[in-house]
Write a protein that binds this DNA or RNA. Sequence first.
DNA 1: AACTGCGGGCAGA
DNA 2: TCTGCCCGCAGTT
Length: 316
Amino acid sequence: MTLPESISPGGSPTTADPDHDDSESRHQWDINDNILPTIHDVDDYRDWPNGHCKAVYTEGSEEARRHASGWAMRNTNNHKVEILKKSCLGVLVCSQRCSLDSGDTVHLRPAICDKARRKQLGKSCPNPNCSGHLELQPCRGHCGYPVTHFWRHVDGVVFFQAKGIHDHSRPELKSSADGRRCSPRDNRSLGYERARIARKRMSPDSVSSQELYPHKLQHMDDPEFTNPMVSNEMICSCPPFECLCGAGTPRSLVFHHQTILSSVTSPGPLVYHVPEPTNRHHAPGERPTSDYVRRRRDSYLALDACGRDAQRRWRR
DNA sequence: AACTGCGGGCAGA
DNA sequence: TCTGCCCGCAGTT
Ligand SMILES: [Zn+2]
Ligand SMILES: [Zn+2]
């Protein structure tokens, strides 16, 4: 497979370092393999896996046993008994994409149950100063389809594999969604009681703070990954390292994304979006590290075929 | 009432 | 054949 020339920034070397120890080299298996390797060391459970990643858990992990995730994942028919498959439901957002003065935005957790989810849609935005309603921002993180999670139990170990990069913000955690479900003040239809709603404060867990980010490169597999370019306003699938400087809104980068977004008719992974020059994602004057260059290239490779399919679909 | 997993069935690639 | 997705069923929380 060949890469577009422009992915290689500034003529930097793009040879991969075979000794580099990352999750991809640690997990040489695929969830569909007939024989999975004997596992010696396992991973700590993570709420927010993102990107094409794998993990091995023990059945001692409550979350792994329940096939849990921070993302709202619903069971889907895999036509395979051994492998449980789930797909992402996305996130509930305000139709007006409102934000508080603090910059907080709405990102409620979609109900897993179809019936319950239908009831959520159309309810008023929890922001007292907003007349918007809740709508579902679907996940299109895997070739235009929802991100999928696969779970497989073999001899007491739990193999986990994810496919796709979520193109939406994180929904609130299940625990805080449960809390609101049980809270009587939230059980009424928001259409009826606007006055009381207006007095209600937004639940702190249903909003996200947009802090200022230091110049720092972060991998999407990082448990603490937060990409300001993946927000309700902006969709960017440039994988997997992005600079978090300036709260993700350096003017040129935003302009670049808007240009890209307006050139496609349907949202989805924009895998051929190649910011140019690549070191725009770095602190001014800093060269991209060879690690950055290598992993960026690898991630483009991983998404290459998938992205081509998606682009083809959109053009029709 | 909602969550979770299962599996039949259908459609499109 | 593979994948996405809809639907209903049943057991659990
Ligand atoms: Zn709103
Ligand atoms: Zn998603």
